[in-house]
Amino acid sequence: MHAYYFDNLPTDQRLPHITDPARPVSPETLAKLGVLSWVVPVPPDAASPSNSQGISEEEDCEVNRVAKEREYKNRDVINVSREGMVAVFGIFGVGVGFFDVRETPTDAWIRIAVAPGDLLVLPAGIHHRFTLDTKNQIRALRLFKDEPKWIPHARSGATDTNVHRVGYLRDVGAGIVPAVGVSA
Rank of each mutant, 00 (worst) to 15 (best):
Y4S: 04
N8S: 13
N8Q: 13
L9F: 05
L9Y: 09
L9I: 09
L9R: 15
T11S: 11
Q13G: 09
R14I: 06
H17I: 06
H17Y: 10
T19K: 08
P21A: 03
R23C: 10
P24T: 11
E28W: 10
E28F: 06
T29E: 15
T29I: 13
V35P: 03
S37E: 07
P41W: 04
V42S: 14
S48I: 12
S52G: 15
G54A: 04
G54L: 07
I55C: 06
E58Y: 08
C61F: 15
E62Q: 15
R65I: 11
V66F: 14
R75Q: 12
R75D: 07
V80I: 14
V80S: 06
R82E: 12
F89I: 00
I91E: 10
V94Y: 10
P105N: 02
T106L: 10
D107M: 14
I110S: 01
A115K: 15
G117E: 09
L119K: 01
A124H: 06
I126K: 02
H127V: 09
R129T: 10
F130A: 00
T131P: 01
T131H: 14
L132C: 10
K135L: 14
A140C: 11
L141M: 07
W150Y: 13
I151T: 15
H153D: 05
S156Y: 07
S156D: 03
T159S: 14
V166C: 05
V166L: 14
G175N: 12
